[in-house]
Design a protein around this nucleic acid. Sequence first.
DNA 1: TTGTAAGCGTTATCAC
DNA 2: GTGATAACGCTTACAA
Lengths: 342, 342
Amino acid sequence: MSSSSSPRPSTTHDVARLAGVSQATVSLVLGGNPRARVAAATRERVIRAAEELGYRPNIVARGLVRGRSYALGVIVPDLANPFFLEVVRGIERVASTAGYAVLLCDARETTPARHLEALRARLIDGVIVDPLGVEGLPADSLTDLNLVVVDQPSERWPGVASDAEGAGRLAAEHLLALGHREVAMVGPATDVHSFRMRERGFTRALRAAGVALPSGWLRRAPATVAGGEAAMRALLPRRGSRPTAVFCTSDLLALGALKACATAGVAVPGAMSVVGCDDIEMARVVTPELTTVAVPARELGARAARLLLRQLDGRGGETRPGRVLPVRLVPRGTTAPPPTDP
Amino acid sequence: MSSSSSPRPSTTHDVARLAGVSQATVSLVLGGNPRARVAAATRERVIRAAEELGYRPNIVARGLVRGRSYALGVIVPDLANPFFLEVVRGIERVASTAGYAVLLCDARETTPARHLEALRARLIDGVIVDPLGVEGLPADSLTDLNLVVVDQPSERWPGVASDAEGAGRLAAEHLLALGHREVAMVGPATDVHSFRMRERGFTRALRAAGVALPSGWLRRAPATVAGGEAAMRALLPRRGSRPTAVFCTSDLLALGALKACATAGVAVPGAMSVVGCDDIEMARVVTPELTTVAVPARELGARAARLLLRQLDGRGGETRPGRVLPVRLVPRGTTAPPPTDP
DNA sequence: TTGTAAGCGTTATCAC
DNA sequence: GTGATAACGCTTACAA
């Protein structure tokens, strides 16, 4: 029977006293140490006493002596982007299953460097950095830190990644197959690696097909709905000289682009095709539904977490590069052949 | 000059040795204790030594002795709902400014009770519970815990709230003013208090105007896009016997409803008016833009955090009830007078 | 003003 | 098997 409210949480000492054993024995029994050899009778008594007192190990104390906190840090560029949220969910699922807490850090609120400082002070066991340019971080904030990177290449840190370049290529091939030749692209001006790779995959596939991407048709905008809207607006004005299709390197941008088209009275996909990237839930909410490239966000997060956990358990030696997660095109309602020229 | 990579993070002992003082003195200087009286020269020396070694206090150790972790827990019903995310952001902003870390817990991943257990074990200083029915939680998981509730009434815990009932009323008055008499409502079947209050405000205002809400027109669905879509689909079938307007107690639901209308070819707002609640960013992304009731999510979070922090500092005595945050109707494109009957 | 010393709750290393 | 005992890094009386 579990006890009721106690003013001060009970400790191993309390349990020891009640069970009539030494505090160390309690630790041995309750510490979950597999190779702890304790007499069955003693163990039994300790466990009952612990239940009686409603004993809960103090993770902070344990962390102090073991030098570990059983907590992970996660730094993402922007939590408001559903894609990153999905990655975080993947991380949380496996972390909490393994008994780890997750400290979520949004780079929009504080700089990654400051977040890192705060995390270290908490004896964080490891950190997962979603595409954010770890390389740009102050070196000494990274020393002796268990780190796993998501969607960015690194000599120094192990990581997991999706096929970002493939995502761009898929988008291009889809548009090309539909017959588009006048295409534009909008992406954020950040140094987030996966965004750059998406762009590269797109432009390369275009070039391989002999299609040029005029510099004026490469719009930069923050990876938000508002950003996409503004970018598309800039792409629309002069009839005749506008693209017939646009690739947005993030669904949020694509949603904004769709909005701009709706506002301007440009029919999608009749007069303009739009392709996004991520496949967030909202992609299927708009009408017509957004054609996009699906990226396995949750799986990405889960793998990153597993990789980090393995590393923490010392089983990190096997740093096999880790397969790049495949992406896939999801053709929906915002793409069609270009309008036949009047 | 800050030092470069050190294998083991330096401690107060290291600083003491370098500065030629005792470890306790270092603690006095660096501990930020306002009433610590240390000679200016000594203090100077300690600070320089600390910088030299790149000393960072170990928050875990400090937490152990002070019985505090300088971390806050936040439990929300569903992080995928942008509204709650916004609340969290408000919390994070003020928490991190005050030097507190935030542990985010999504009730969809693990039960609130388990989350609470995990948080306690980490000596969490306090917890903010977003509308989730604290009352239903096991009593002994709450004893001796600093808790602040958001958007739910409680005898036991201080909290902050938005005018949920007012939100429902505003939606109803808007619809009534437009001339609607055949109205439906869709909301989640949860025990989340704010949702229930929104419903109550809506139905009361309706009743006050002599308009009935047939039981078949009160649809229950999870507070997600998919949920709203299904609920609206159920509301649509038989022409002639369907409502002319729907109030969704969450924007996510409203977005789903809009989607269902689009799929079924029902014109919005021509043949059907839709009102949401929350005013998330996506509300302005769809076309037409969603009429909704704006709730100050971020401010709600910020206030909750400030309240909790004040409580932690012992200044909690002044538990003045805290003003209820006002909401306001944002008329946009999804509402219009009902179609003139054929 | 500064140093000494006693913990905070746990784990881990030894003797017994 | 079990029980002292020494850390872990820090704060905080209390002594000097």
